[in-house]
Design a binder for these strands. Sequence first.
RNA 1: GCAAGGCAUCGCUCUAUCGCGCGUCUCGCUAGUCGAGGUGUGAGGAAAGUCCGGACAACGUAGAGUACCGUACCGUGUAAUAAGCGGAUCCCUCGGAAGCGAGGGGAUAGAAAGUGUCGCAGAAAAUAACCGCCCAUCGAGUUUUCUCGAAGGGUAAGGGUGAAAAUGUGAGGUAAGAGCUCACGAUGCUAAUGGGUAACUGUUAGUGUGGAUAAACCUUGUGGGUUGUAAUGCCAUGUAUAUUAUGAUUCGACUUAGGUCGACGAGAGUUGCUCGCUCAAGAAUACCAAGUCAUAAGGGGUAGGCAGCAUAGAUAAAUGAUAGAGCACCAGUAAUGGUGACAGAAUCCGGCUUAUAGAUGCAUUUUUUAC
RNA 2: GGACGGUUGGCCGAGCGGCUAGGCUCAGGUCUGCAAAACCUGCUACAGCGGUUCAAAUCCGCUACCGUCCU
Length: 135
Amino acid sequence: MANQHSFPASQKLKSRKTIATLFESGKTMKAYPIRAVYSIIPYNPEYHAAHVQMGISVPKRSFKKAVDRNRIKRQVRESYRMHHAQLIQLAKEKNIYLALMTIYIDRKEPDYEYLDKKVINLIEQLSKLLKSYKA
RNA sequence: GCAAGGCAUCGCUCUAUCGCGCGUCUCGCUAGUCGAGGUGUGAGGAAAGUCCGGACAACGUAGAGUACCGUACCGUGUAAUAAGCGGAUCCCUCGGAAGCGAGGGGAUAGAAAGUGUCGCAGAAAAUAACCGCCCAUCGAGUUUUCUCGAAGGGUAAGGGUGAAAAUGUGAGGUAAGAGCUCACGAUGCUAAUGGGUAACUGUUAGUGUGGAUAAACCUUGUGGGUUGUAAUGCCAUGUAUAUUAUGAUUCGACUUAGGUCGACGAGAGUUGCUCGCUCAAGAAUACCAAGUCAUAAGGGGUAGGCAGCAUAGAUAAAUGAUAGAGCACCAGUAAUGGUGACAGAAUCCGGCUUAUAGAUGCAUUUUUUAC
RNA sequence: GGACGGUUGGCCGAGCGGCUAGGCUCAGGUCUGCAAAACCUGCUACAGCGGUUCAAAUCCGCUACCGUCCU
């Protein structure tokens, strides 16, 4: 991995199936205004394109305009992109697969700095979990 | 000058760093839905609403009628349209003494084919006699004229209402009246003729005039086969005409379960229906096996990819973040500070509608408020 | 992407073009020692804009919002 801050398509959560199973059996974690649904399973290179896959969702109920939804998704993604290196590192060390879905549950538009803090908070929580996994 | 609304055009730009989608080139090895690097490209005037119109696709065994849905001045225009352009006619506003002119608007076929509806008020709301007016008859009063009453006939000139009261005004006419007649108008139809491609319109002649409503049913003309890219085709994955029970059938069919029909066409197909068209089956009876059909019980799998699909192009969906500079506007004497709208492609085009800070151009308006 | 439906007081919910029913809630009164129940009285509406019509909640068009269906 030449660049720490890249976020290619393989690290995005895209499969309809894994998302469905994630919502059925995943666990939740909160870092208001973000709620995260995640699941940790052993890594299998045949099925998993990357060690960590992440998706973002903004409900239409809270934000009616597509422009607002897009902006929030981009901001969350940007913040995640800047700070997700340690997560991937940990997942590789432990050889596990982490599926993560973040949902923005506030009804107001955030400013970027606030959002950034919360994403960092979320990632640290997840990192702790990963460290304690299998330990 | 400012402001307002209208129409048209534009609707932030550049640099650096870190990233993303797609195409393409090179390299790498773990050889793929891979990684690295280079390079090209990457939201709008409305991408929105889905209100119209197409392209395109699937479904049909020729065609026609009908139902259903839409539509309604004329020409031009176009792949098509409710766009655009030109014209006719009606309505409104302004100007003018008037002919008429200017501006704006109109879903602008038919109410003389039929049906329905027209609250309240009013005599009456659609085959108008309640009051009034007039005529002659009978009875009563009275010297008669005349007055009152009864039943009958004529009469739409008058009657407070109403959105609307039966073509307006004047004259003749009459018992009283009436397009009953005449003149000048209003308006419909028919014919001839002039103008115009046409809508329509000028003139002449004849004939009529009993309201409104068709964005009430309806009639007439005219258009439309239906469904829509979640269409549709292909590949992959996974499979089951699984199994069980009951019944029917064995020439073919239909059935209301009784039966009925059949090359003299049973029956099936034919996009809602009908006609039409096309296709189309041939035998004794019983039992067994086997098949077929019907009903009931009873499950499982997939939900991915490619094409459709693009000189943006995905499929939990790219087009971003940070910093700086410029530009425009606002506040402020200035330094400086703030703001940059509406809004995000999902098959593609043409129109319409709606949302829009600011800039530019064009024409318009301001008797009440501001220079 | 496509096809449809709805919007009537604070809430529910009728409404054949002619003054917008009814119930619940709320407020006041009667009744009661005080309440409840009952009875009486009252308040508050046709989503918005335009058109057709003498007249529109109703018919037509546009807009806004809410909802349903098709994989």
